[in-house]
Design a protein around this nucleic acid. Sequence first.
DNA 1: TACTTAATAT
DNA 2: TATATTAAGT
Length: 417
Amino acid sequence: MEEKRRSNCGEGFSVLVVDHDTTSLMLLASMLQLFSYQVTTTEVESVALSLIEEAKDRFKLVMADVNMDDVNSLSFLRKLLKMNIPFILMSNEKGHKAAEKAVAYGASLHLEKPISKHDLKYLWQYAYGRPAKRAKHLHDNELRTYDPNKNVGERDEQKKMLNIMPPTERKPRLLWNEELHQKFIAAITALGYANARPKSILTMMDEPNLTQRQVASHLQKHKEHMKRLMSKASPSELASNANASTSIYGKPGFLYMPQGYYSVLSQLGGHTHKYLNDSVAGTSQFSYLAQHSTAGRFSSEYHNEETLQFPNILESMHEKQNIIPDPSPSGNLVYENHNWEPWTEAARGVAEAEIGVRNAAGGVTWNQQSPELAQLLKHLEEEGDACGDCANQPNPDAVDQFCEWLKEAIQGNDNNP
DNA sequence: TACTTAATAT
DNA sequence: TATATTAAGT
């Protein structure tokens, strides 16, 4: 009964055996057949290759006893790796050294000769390894690829063979805590969204333990987040953006600022936002903003009322877009170019949504239904440059100019409903 | 090469 | 779920 169960555990599993020594080749082949493996044999690597090429997916596994100091044999192994065919290396050599060498060349396993039946029973499991990956990691000296699906015995065997530590001792994955994320945001803000590339972000962040890939991954998620925010928060806004325009100061729901004022607003930074929130505390006027900025886990985790990033978003979106007043009599704003990347579009939408405050109906009247801007203006005129703990104080003149513009914007919008 | 995106793995 | 990696394309 034992014999019967053993006899079909390799059922339909096709193995190619390569061994210069005909005797051991035949011996192994017959043992494999005991377990119902489909066996093909050859003494020569080149024949093995042509057999593989004949039917690409035929062999799930290659077992080979090759001379690892031989150039031909090594190129054979390399080709196996390239084709992602797992292979097991066999040799008469004993001990860790041989095994280590074998695995370094990408072998899924090293078997010492003579091969026993016991070695072969679960051979098929090695077909699911990823030799190329394993080999590559070995070269990096960071073996992270234990197969947790292997049973304990095999794992131990592998561990012994490789003389390396278990996965629990691998480096823990990076946690993007708020501080790190803020650093990331600061970097892409400084670079400008349009120029924010993983490499430059990483340089800017100056975090020695951070890798470019990690930054790239985070950047990807960040972009997706911006997109999501955009589609959730203002589903119809892009459409109305495209054609509606009511004054030189904005389209419905939005306030567009000339170039010079972005940096002012940026430098006011969180203070601006905090003021706006505080100043309307208890009113529902800013409920949209609050809802918006805390929607979803990402924002609530990284943003609070004091750390919203919208001025920075505005600044950087401007770098790319160069929004200018249209000199034409219609007075409409135009964009110099329209090649926003989708996610930049999203960032812009978020920023605009937070500057231009919408009422429940989705429209805006700056001075009547959005007292925040008027209050901001009032605040700036009264306290202007008294920015207190503000690290990078805006130029007072710039603030004055901004106030002027803001005043006009409020009135102008009123004049052009 | 460095980058992006989508898909998938962990 | 968040982060990491891969695949495939520019």
